[in-house]
């Protein structure tokens, strides 16, 4: 015996409702997967509290300028040279200028630097300081390079290699 509610066949209604629920329940559910976009994270200069040893300084400097490792024998000899001079600032300056005099030192060209000063500065900060530059540093350096036609990548590299922050890690 069929139950009628105001002319609606209750059994058909329930069947229709069941199909409706079935269809709705089969709808593909959207899922979200969260992943990490690769990022180079750098510390700030405030975290640099340890002074590099003479050996660390020389080996890192060599790697930064020549994109290759210094031999252990040369490292030992150059470290001895640093020890043999009292004014470490001075002897580092002499060592850098000796490196800069070598033909295989790898430097960007002046044209490359001036074509995109921001990119050059970002790369230089990351190479020497292993950190991002601040906006204040960007502004100062950009202005300085733009207003000084004599400034070359070599001089910029020299100043970074000679700076105090480069002596710390």
């Amino acid at each position: 015996m069929h139950t009628l509610i105001k002319g609606v066949d209750m059994r058909r209604f329930l069947l229709f409702l069941g199909v409706l629920i079935f269809i709705a329940s089969c709808k593909k559910k959207e899922t979200y997967e969260y992943q990490i976009t690769p990022q180079n994270l750098y510390p700030t200069n405030a975290g640099k509290v340890k002074l590099k040893t003479d050996g660390q300084y020389v080996s890192i400097l060599y790697a930064n300028l020549f994109q290759t490792a210094l031999s252990s024998n040369e490292l030992f000899r150059i470290t001895q040279c640093i020890e043999s001079v009292g004014d470490k600032d001075l002897v580092r300056e002499v060592i850098i200028s000796n490196f800069m005099n070598k033909s295989d030192v790898i430097l960007p060209t002046n044209e490359e630097m001036r074509a995109d000063i921001d990119a050059f500065l970002e790369a230089t900060y990351e190479r020497f300081y292993v950190r991002k530059m601040t906006e204040a540093e960007r502004t100062w350096f950009r202005n300085y390079i733009e207003s000084n036609p004599n400034v070359t990548p070599e001089l910029v590299y020299f100043s970074f290699a000679l700076s105090n922050e480069y002596l710390f890690y």
Binding site: N45, K48, E137, N150, S159, S163, N164, E165, F168
Partner: peptide, 24 residues
């Protein structure tokens, strides 16, 4: 220019206490 840029960098680093020991 080398020294000017170095002094700028050193001044920034001095703010976080980076002093290098040694004679000058």
């Amino acid at each position: 220019p080398i020294y000017q840029m170095k002094y700028f960098l050193d001044n920034n680093f001095r703010n976080v206490g980076g002093e290098v020991p040694g004679i000058h």
